[in-house]
């Protein structure tokens, strides 16, 4: 994977195109997460949060902020790549890359990088909006940055794989609706999994989002339901596995070459 001059230019072009795409349609891509997070704050923070009291030693609003930011990172990095790559297949402009001497890993890296940028940008916007409702403390910046990078990479890769297999626009909303959303809601965003019965705590261990939310929360609050080492290992394994799958699919031309 030598980053030759040509590959670097190609990678920058894909990244530029991807960023340009979600910035051009910012009303659809950047504004909704800000509105959603505000609603969460109004409902869970101000209305219900007060009755819940403390969670993990913090007031409820502070407890859920990291998870809410993480939720927006997850959905946005996923849906950015899923819609962009699928639409490139649909309009066939993906052929612009396929006819050019762009290595497959550059295509993957470009799209995934674009998805990460959107995830991280939206995460930052959501963080800024959160500041209107709650004071955010920071325990460990490095943990926050590493977690957000790895998590957005996992879901950007997931979105890419989804788009490779998709044959219609419906196909890119099935996974988010039936898999991503349940996993996120059950991923410890709104509660500490230590509150769950033992059996369900065990089940939660196989939900990758639990590790992401907890590692991220550790970065802000210094508390986590799982060990950081385990969390980073699990998330990194997901990155490597999904990257490999994406590479194999693109090299075989699944959904791209007849």
């Amino acid at each position: 994977m030598m980053l030759s001059f040509r590959n670097r230019v190609a990678l920058t072009s894909i990244l530029y195109k991807e960023i340009h795409r979600f910035m051009r349609i910012w009303v659809q891509t950047l504004v909704p997460p800000a509105i959603t997070i505000s609603l969460y704050f109004v409902i869970f923070g101000s209305l219900i949060g007060k009755r819940i009291g403390e969670m993990g030693g913090f007031d409820y609003m502070s407890f859920i902020v990291p998870g809410l930011i993480m939720m927006s990172v997850i959905t946005n990095s996923y849906s950015n790549v899923a819609s962009s790559f699928f639409s490139a297949k649909w309009q066939r402009n993906v052929e612009e890359m396929l006819v050019a001497p762009v290595p497959n890993w550059v295509i993957v890296a470009g799209y995934v990088g674009g998805g990460m940028c959107r995830g991280i940008l939206v995460g930052s916007i959501v963080t800024l909006v959160s500041l209107l409702f709650v004071d955010i403390q920071i325990h460990n910046v490095a943990v926050i940055i590493i977690t957000v990078m790895l998590t957005s990479a996992v879901f950007a890769l997931g979105g890419l794989i989804n788009a490779i297999f998709a044959n219609s626009f419906d196909d890119i909303s099935i996974i988010p609706t039936f898999i991503l959303t349940p996993l996120t809601y059950l991923g410890g965003v709104f509660y500490s999994i230590s509150l769950l019965p033992e059996f369900w705590q065990g089940v939660s261990q196989i939900n990758p989002i639990v590790y992401m939310v907890n590692a991220f929360r550790y970065g802000f609050l210094g508390i986590s339901d799982v060990s950081l080492t385990v969390a980073f290992t699990v998330i990194s394994l997901f990155v490597v596995t999904l990257f490999t799958i994406a590479m194999v699919l693109i090299s075989k031309g699944i959904g791209l070459r007849s």
Binding site: F5, A10, T12, S13, E96
Partner: peptide, 9 residues
């Protein structure tokens, strides 16, 4: 401009 980029221009 993007297409040129894919060829390393």
């Amino acid at each position: 401009v993007n297409q040129a980029g894919y060829y390393g221009v």
